[in-house]
C-alpha cells in the first residue's frame, strides 16, 4: 500500500506548533492588550515605548512567530472544517490553496509590517 510521499507532516507540524504557541501566548497577549490595559488595571504604555519595544529584534521575532504559526494553525484547522465538516471533498485542492495561501499572505504581511516599522 505504498503511496506518494506525503507532505502532511509539514502542514501538521506547523499546525501543532502553532496550536501550542497560540494557546500559550495569545491568552496572555489578549489579556494584557485587550482587557487589562483598556480597563486601566495596568497603566497604558506610551506609543514611543511600545514602538521601541517592537523594534527590538527579539520582540519582532516573537510577534512574527506568534502571528505566522497561529495563522497556519487556523489554516489547517479550517481546511479540515471545510473538508470534513461541510463535506467539500471534491474541492480539496482549492480549499488547501485558499487556507494555506491565506496563512502565507498573513505571514508575508506580518514580515513586511514588523520589519518595516
Amino acid at each position: 500500500m505504498k503511496t506518494r510521499k506525503s507532505i502532511d507532516p509539514f502542514w501538521w507540524s506547523l499546525f501543532g506548533t502553532g496550536g501550542v504557541i497560540a494557546a500559550l501566548c495569545l491568552p496572555a497577549l489578549l489579556f494584557l492588550n485587550g482587557v487589562a490595559i483598556p480597563l486601566g488595571w495596568i497603566e497604558a504604555p506610551s506609543y514611543e515605548h511600545v514602538l521601541t519595544l517592537v523594534k527590538n529584534s527579539l520582540t519582532r521575532l516573537f510577534l512574527f512567530v506568534v502571528i505566522s504559526l497561529s495563522l497556519f494553525h487556523w489554516a489547517h484547522r479550517f481546511r479540515f472544517t471545510l473538508y470534513d465538516g461541510l463535506q467539500l471533498k471534491h474541492l480539496n485542492q482549492l480549499i488547501a490553496v485558499l487556507c494555506y495561501g491565506t496563512a502565507m499572505i498573513g505571514t508575508i504581511a506580518s514580515l513586511y509590517t514588523l520589519w518595516g516599522l
Binding site: M1, K2, T3, R4, K5, S6, D8, P9, W12
Partner: peptide
Amino acid sequence: EILKEDNGIY
C-alpha cells in the same frame, strides 16, 4: 512507512 502516508495518522 504505512502510517505516515495517505489513510494513516494524518
